[in-house]
Simulated scan of single mutants.
Amino acid sequence: MRIPKVLFLAVIVGIGASSSAADLRSSARRGGGMPPVSGPARPVAKAVRPFFSNLTSHTVSSTSPYHPAILRRHYEQAAADKAAGEKFYKLLADYQDRDALVLGYKAASEAIRARDASMFNKLTYVQDAAKTFEQAVGLDPQNPEIRFLRFSVESNLPAFLGLSKHVEEDKEMLLNAALNHPGTGLDAEAFRTVRGFLVGRGHVSEEEAQRLSKVKE
């Protein structure tokens, strides 16, 4: 049975939905095994707890509402709660500066907004997120945190939207970063998160999963 496009958009549980942080931490402890996939999808934002903290260079003051630590906390809360998602979106909706990481989180807030929007507005917010991710990556192409945010969103979009064109590119970057850990600067928590997500959600081959399982934290 064919599902009308607008209805399909309405029933996407979360634009950018996937394993919870608890699932990924459990997966990492098992060496990257498959986390539970039964039950409703859960937002991937919870998988991006204080991660990549050793990698990110930014110009935002520690007292700014756009400081990475604050944005990560908002993202985690927004993943689990509609009201928090609205607050996260409003925090970043008017952001006009050019800090790449902040723009990455703005894109993530737009994707979460799509999750909670009416069926008629979902696609608009997804398209907004795609444009903002493009701007963020253009400003800082080698930032793994931004790539992880984009990958976690795009890898969960339905193919017919045509908005998942960076999945392979971002996956390759994240896979290389994980395989070359710790030489790429990933801290242990960031490595476990990336490995658990790539392996646990089936984004890598069995051979790649085996190689990742042998990488020491």
Rank of each mutant, 00 (worst) to 15 (best):
M1R: 10
R2L: 06
L7S: 12
F8H: 13
F8P: 07
L9V: 10
A10Y: 14
A10V: 07
I12M: 11
G16W: 05
S19V: 13
S19F: 13
S19K: 09
S20T: 15
S20D: 10
A22Q: 10
A22K: 13
D23Y: 03
L24Q: 02
S26H: 06
S27A: 07
A28Q: 12
R29G: 03
G31D: 01
S38W: 06
G39T: 08
G39V: 06
P40R: 10
P40G: 03
R42T: 10
A45M: 04
K46W: 12
A47G: 15
V48T: 12
V48Q: 12
R49P: 05
P50M: 04
F52A: 06
L55F: 06
T56M: 02
S57M: 05
H58Q: 07
T59M: 08
S61Y: 03
S62I: 04
S64A: 00
Y66K: 01
Y66L: 05
L71C: 09
Y75L: 15
A78G: 10
A78K: 13
A80I: 15
D81K: 06
D81C: 12
G85T: 01
G85P: 02
K87G: 03
F88V: 01
Y89E: 00
A93S: 13
A93M: 07
D94M: 03
D99M: 05
D99F: 06
D99R: 09
L101W: 14
V102I: 04
L103E: 12
S109L: 05
S109K: 14
A111T: 12
R113K: 15
D116Y: 15
F120W: 13
N121A: 13
K122I: 12
L123G: 03
L123T: 00
V126S: 09
D128H: 14
D128M: 11
K131P: 02
T132C: 01
F133I: 07
Q135K: 15
Q135C: 01
V137H: 03
G138E: 04
L139S: 09
L139N: 10
D140T: 02
D140M: 09
P141W: 15
N143K: 00
P144F: 08
P144H: 13
I146R: 05
I146T: 08
I146Y: 01
F148H: 09
L149K: 09
L149P: 06
R150V: 00
R150M: 07
R150H: 08
V153R: 02
S155E: 03
N156V: 04
P158K: 01
A159F: 05
L161Y: 01
L161Q: 00
L161A: 02
G162T: 13
L163H: 02
S164E: 11
H166M: 05
V167S: 00
D170E: 01
L175A: 08
A177M: 12
L179D: 03
L179R: 14
G183D: 13
L186M: 03
L186V: 09
L186F: 14
D187P: 01
D187G: 06
A190Y: 08
F191H: 13
R192S: 12
T193L: 14
T193Y: 13
V194R: 08
R195C: 01
R195E: 10
R195T: 08
R195A: 11
R195W: 11
G196A: 08
F197K: 07
F197Y: 15
G200R: 04
H203S: 12
V204E: 01
V204L: 13
S205Y: 11
A209V: 05
A209P: 09
R211T: 07
L212F: 12
S213Y: 07
V215Y: 09
